[in-house]
Each structure stands twice: as C-alpha cells, then as structure tokens.
C-alpha cells in the first residue's frame, strides 16, 4: 500500500552518530546496546518468517518432488520432477493460469482507472466529501466471503437482482455462473467493488501532495484542467500508480476466495468447466479437495516463479520510468 516501496529505500536518514568516546563504566553494555540490540529488534520478524515463511517455502519445494496424499502423509514416494511435468501437460494448469490472467485484467484495469477518476473527483471541494470518502471505502471492510456471498446472490441466473434489472431494460437473462466470460466478469466485479475505493483514497492522498506551484506554473502556461490532469497530476502520481499496479497484480495472482465461494458447490472446480478456476483455486482443489499434496506443492512453486517474473518485469519497468 505504501507507495515508498518503489521510491526511497536508498535515501535513509542519517543514522545516530556514535556517542563521544571516553565514557568508561557503562562502555561494555553500551557497546552491546549499539552492536547487538538492533539485531535483537529485527529478530522477531526474521524468526517468525523463517519458521512460517522460509521453512514452508523450502519444504514445499521438497514435497513437490514427491507423491504425498493426505490420507497417508508418512508414505512419500519420490517422483522427481514428475509433478511438474504432469502439471505442464495438464490443460487445467494452463486453463487456470490463463483464467488467473484474464480475471486479473478484468478486475484490475477498470478498477484502477475508476479509482483514478474517483480520486480526481474526491479532490474537489464538495459538500459531503467526507461522507463520500468513507462510503467508497466501506466495501473494503467487507470480507471476501461476505462480499462474494452477496454478489453470487445478485448474479443468480433465475432470480438474481442483476438479471432482473437487465430484464427491465429488455436484455435476456444471463447465466452468469456457467458462462466463461460472464462468470469472470462477475468475479472481477466483486474484486473491483472491494478495492476501488481503497485505491481511490491512495491516489487522492498522492494527488494532494502534488506541489501547488506545479499547477500554478502550468496554469500560467495556459493549460486547461484536463491538460493539468494529464501533464501534472498523472506524472506526479506515477510511482503511486506503479505501486498500486504491482499490489493489484500480486493480489490477482493469488486470487482465491472470490472464485471459490462464487461457485457454490462447484467452487473448488472453478465452475463446471473450470471456467473461472484460478491458480489459487486449483491449488486448493488439488491439495484440499483431492488430497494430492505433492501436486499442490508443485502448483505453489509455479505461482512463486510467476510472481518472481512479475517482480523482475516491474523492476525493469520502474527503472526505465525513473530514468525517463
């Protein structure tokens, strides 16, 4: 969330200078305090991460080289890269990867564009602007589970509210859940609903910290409001936009709760035909519905590699942007 991730890790403030030498009695404990204490302060983070982040990460890699089933966890059969080769020839993996991508685009692109627009509007002086800010943020307080349950009811084929509204304007009812694109649009709209307001506030904050003189200067040059938005606001927001893109992309790669719950009894399949099965759901299905832990682990590593790829691309892009 904090835009700095992409900006100023290098210009850290000057550290505390060493105390003047020559003070004797407390020097040992002082010395300890200066050399050891900082490590002690960062230890909790690294300790917990090592136990519950790093260890599972490596162990997942190890498991992915075995055939392991939930019913018989102590019976492990070495299969080498078998789970990976099997995954790579499985249509469902590619289907899930592609779905993850398309649902990601459907849920991210309109979301960020709308957030930008909303932020722009929220930046105006307006009656009730405080209310609007809270209102657009409220969906964010709703959990994925609760939000998805409401939306799946509204997207119902026979008795859903959305089909009823469509019917009012003469559009035939849509079988949202079983269609390929319709189900992905429905799921994307849940994500968009929950995140647009939040991102709008992040953009709004960034807009408000754009120095006034930039606008004044462009106003003197005779720029219109739209030109100001394009020439001043957007470039100033670039790091923030990039940051929200990265966060949304990571979120989209891990998308899980919305498709799982949207599908009701077909959730773990990602729909009858897997039409909205994402990588996260596929992992869940293999591991916790079919009890194939080795395969689930292989999918997990595939997801990790994809994220690293995204990070690399992001690093390249942001470096170019910074140079530009």
């Amino acid at each position: 969330m904090a835009a700095p991730a992409l900006t100023d890790t290098h210009d850290a403030p000057a550290p505390v200078p060493q105390a003047p030498p020559g003070r004797t009695r407390r020097s040992l404990s002082d010395w300890l305090d200066r050399t050891a204490a900082p490590y002690a302060y960062v230890t909790p983070f690294f300790a917990v991460f090592a136990a519950f982040g790093l260890y599972p990460l490596l162990y997942t890699g190890w498991i992915s080289l075995h055939r392991v089933e939930l019913q018989t966890p102590d019976r492990r059969e070495w299969v080498g890269l078998g789970n990976y080769t099997e995954m790579l020839v499985d249509d469902r993996f590619w289907n899930a990867l592609w779905n993850t991508f398309t649902i990601g685009v459907i849920s991210t692109v309109p979301q960020l564009l709308m957030a930008l627009g909303l932020a722009h509007l929220l930046n105006y002086k307006l009656r009730g602007s405080a209310f609007f800010r809270v209102a657009v943020l409220t969906p964010h307080a709703t959990s994925v589970a609760a939000g998805t349950l409401v939306f799946s009811l509204m997207f119902g084929r026979d008795f859903g509210m959305i089909n009823w509204l469509l019917d009012l304007v003469g559009v035939h009812p849509v079988d949202w859940e079983s269609g390929h694109w319709t189900s992905q649009i429905a799921i994307g709209s849940i994500v968009t609903w929950r995140w647009t307001g939040y991102n709008a506030l992040v953009y709004l904050a960034a807009m408000q910290s754009v120095p006034t003189d930039l606008y004044e200067a462009s106003a003197i040059d005779g720029a219109s409001r739209w030109q100001q938005f394009r020439k001043v606001t957007i470039p100033s927001l670039r790091p923030t936009i990039l940051f929200t893109v990265v966060v949304s992309t990571i979120g989209a790669t891990q998308l899980f709760g919305e498709p799982l719950l949207f599908g009701g009894t077909a959730g773990a399949r990602g729909g009858t035909d897997g039409q909205y099965q994402t990588l996260g759901v596929l992992l869940y299905q293999q591991g916790w519905a079919l009890f194939h832990f080795g395969r689930a682990a292989a999918i997990a590593w595939a997801m990790f590699l994809i994220l690293i790829l995204i990070a690399a691309v992001n690093a390249l892009v942001s470096r170019r942007l910074r140079r530009a």
């Binding site: 799946s152 119902g156 026979d158 008795f159 009701g264 009894t265 077909a266």
Partner: peptide, 16 residues
C-alpha cells in the same frame, strides 16, 4: 441446475 446449489433450492420454492 446443480443439486444443493442455491438455484436448486430456489427452484423448489419457485416451482421450476
């Protein structure tokens, strides 16, 4: 429909 899905239940109440 899919048995035990919401829509199935709704099918009973709406005589489908």
């Amino acid at each position: 429909l899919r048995q035990f899905d919401t829509a199935w239940d709704q099918g009973f109440s709406n005589s489908r």
